[in-house]
Design a protein around this nucleic acid. Structure first.
Length: 348
DNA sequence: AAGTCGGGGCT
DNA sequence: AGCCCAGACTT
């Protein structure tokens, strides 16, 4: 076994994480679900969502049989909702194509929606002990420092080098442990800011440590400033306290989630609202800003209390008057859920 | 190669 | 205030 892997496994035996919920039991479905949830999402955030999800949908078959609103409700607040829709579709494809199980071949895994090369490698390595490398954010950070590779890891030439090193280091034995170990090293020792090189099993041979480059490697993403958009959210509430929600389409942000009707700005809100219900006065609520990774959204919520549902808008698949109980069973964008939770009581 | 897709934690 | 996180997909 190569020196890198041997030292890493020795460290893992004493200091690795061995009590994460997807490690017990470590079956393919749970590894897969954890990998999808962990895409661009930190472990501490995922743990609670993972436990709730597997409690409600413990098997691939139960996921495939669930309806989309149930899956999105379990995902609500976690973000990147396309992951949940891909997960759901992939489970159904496994039932159709692979006898109800995840395939054990790299190509077949990568052909499923939401599974790229790194996620496929993680599933094969961790669930089945097969010798496939991974290259997530942790591994990119560890390897770019260890080998002293400058350049943004998202750039294709850099990423290609990193994949080559990742494959070289991956041992023939103890693949599942090795895969967990290199992620643990990145998450707990070779962290982005102020890495704990004194505790690192690779410090003696790490280029960045030798040359004092841990502060500049890996090379940061080239910065860019993000635009600001704005809209008004319409809170149409009837006498029973129900709120009108609309299911968003398959494209764009919050795809498939239930959200509030929107207008381009507060001045247009009355016109839009009157097309959805018989309304009285508009009551502006405090505006807030929601930040995405690629733009900033200024939201002006406007409350229309004592709204009277129009028959023509009440009975569509993508439009629904919801009480508080129903909200819990639907996927809502995080800021909308917060907004509804903090709504003032109905004025007399 | 660049843009799209969330939300939260950390500095 | 800005950056990053167990990335993948689309254009």
């Amino acid at each position: 076994m190569n020196v890198f892997a041997r030292e890493l496994l020795r460290w893992y035996d004493h200091h690795g994480r061995k009590d994460l919920p997807w490690q017990h039991p470590r079956d393919a479905y749970r590894v897969w679900l954890s990998e999808i949830m962990l895409q661009q999402t930190q472990v501490v955030t995922v743990v609670g969502y993972f436990q709730r999800f597997v409690e409600r949908l413990p098997t691939l078959a139960s996921l495939a049989a669930a309806d989309e609103d149930t899956v999105l409700a379990l995902w609500s607040g976690l973000g990147y909702y396309r992951r949940a829709r891909f997960l759901h579709r992939a489970a159904q494809l496994c039932v159709e194509r692979h006898g109800g199980e995840l395939p054990r071949e790299l190509d077949a895994l990568m052909a499923l929606p939401g599974i790229g090369r790194s996620t496929a490698g993680a599933i094969l390595a961790q669930a089945h002990g097969l010798r496939f490398p991974i290259l997530d954010g942790n591994v990119k950070r560890v390897l770019s420092r260890y080998h002293g590779i400058a350049g943004f890891p998202g750039e294709s030439a850099i990423e290609k080098q990193l994949w080559r090193h990742a494959a070289e280091h991956t041992p023939a034995e103890r693949i599942a442990d090795y895969t967990q170990a290199i992620m643990d090293l990145g998450a707990t020792v070779c962290v982005r800011a102020k890495p704990l090189c004194l505790l690192c099993p690779q410090a003696a041979t790490c280029v960045a440590h030798r040359d004092g480059l841990t502060g500049v490697l890996p090379t940061a993403k080239p910065g860019k400033k993000i635009p600001t958009r704005s809209l008004a959210m319409l809170l149409l509430r009837d006498a029973r306290g129900r709120v009108l929600l609309e299911k968003r389409g398959p494209q764009g942000v919050w795809s498939g989630l239930w959200s509030l009707p929107e207008a381009t700005d507060p001045d247009a809100a009355g016109m839009v609202a009157s097309g959805l219900a018989r309304i009285g006065e508009a009551d502006p609520l405090p505006a807030f800003t929601h930040v995405f990774s690629h733009y900033r959204l200024d939201v002006s919520p406007i409350l229309f209390d004592h709204a009277a549902p129009l028959a023509t808008v009440a009975d569509r698949d993508d439009r629904r008057w919801c009480d508080r109980e129903e909200l819990a069973s639907l996927g809502l964008p995080a800021p909308v859920r917060t907004l509804l939770a903090n709504l003032p009581e109905i004025a007399p």
